[in-house]
Design a protein around this nucleic acid. Structure first.
Lengths: 157, 157
DNA sequence: ACAATATGGTCAATCAAGTTGACTATGATA
DNA sequence: TATCATAGTCAACTTGATTGACCATATTGT
């Protein structure tokens, strides 16, 4: 196999590498803190739940998977103590998924870790450049013609 | 569920969104060109194969999956005409996976599409800024302390 | 030289995370 | 109030990975 020439990477590969290395570091650190059963998709779900809970259907639309798959994920996360199913206040068919105390702990830990990582980047390229970077990425994901953000790709965590 | 405030996204989410939207667009366009059976992992494998072929073990290390999983992928890609297994020139145990003509076609198409996308970005934020962006991302994925690029995250395509 | 061990690849069984389809209970509507 | 729609769960299946066993060939140590 040919060696990868890093200085010649296209933008897509660079985005992939930087994103993946961030997510890997995040989950390594979470693992060290005892949250070793949390996968990226779980954090993605937490983002949908925060701050006031969400129904299974809402989560499934957010994650882009079926409601049955969400139900299985919630089974797992409920068993491991991160979320709870609550009865829906107005709709007796529905349930609301909310974070438990442990769920909030992992969310706080995630924020701390990501802040650290972003801080390391600021130390390396300067915080102004990080702001420019964020602004540029924001412009890039904004679909010029359609005037809205791309719908098929969603942030994890 | 709370609405996503796009202007307040952290860097990780921005990287995820921009990466995913790029990959989605790439595969949509490939699909239109008739390469609808190609998944991102396949393109990743092509990158390892180019330009002189690779053994199954090499590919498995590159992709970070088992050699058995690679073998199945190669079965699929061979059946659909993108790669071939060749006998290894010196090691009678081994085989070399190489691209077929159709395999090269999809690689060329991918390059064209990614160039278009990067060009669109240049048109939007300016090509100098795209260069800065690339340089910054490169610095970010370079692990300062260890003096080497992060090993667990690899580019797709 | 050759016995012991390591390596490349495949086969088979299994696992994990998703899917589709069927169903129940409740809600909304003609 | 009869009908249709919706939220959630159960069960069966699909897919892309895994582990373990195996064969053929290479490499190594004595």
């Amino acid at each position: 196999m040919n060696d990868q020439v890093f200085s010649d990477l296209d933008l897509t590969s660079l985005l992939s590498l930087s994103y993946n290395s961030t997510i890997n570091e995040l989950h390594e650190k979470l693992s060290e803190l005892g949250f070793d059963d949390i996968r990226p998709a779980h954090g993605f779900m937490f983002k949908c739940i925060i701050p006031n809970g969400a129904t299974g259907i809402e989560i499934s639309e957010y994650l882009g998977i079926t409601k049955q798959a969400v139900s299985k994920m919630v089974d797992f996360l409920e068993k491991s103590g991160y979320v709870m199913r609550q009865t829906h206040p107005t709709d007796k068919r529905g349930k609301i998924i909310v974070l438990t105390e442990r769920g909030w702990l992992v969310v706080k830990a995630k924020e701390k870790i990501l802040t650290e990582i972003e801080g390391r980047w600021s130390a390396k390229i300067g915080s102004e450049r990080v702001q420019v970077l964020k602004g540029d990425l924001l412009k890039i994901i904004f679909k010029e013609n359609e005037g809205e953000y791309s719908s098929f790709s969603r942030p994890i965590w």
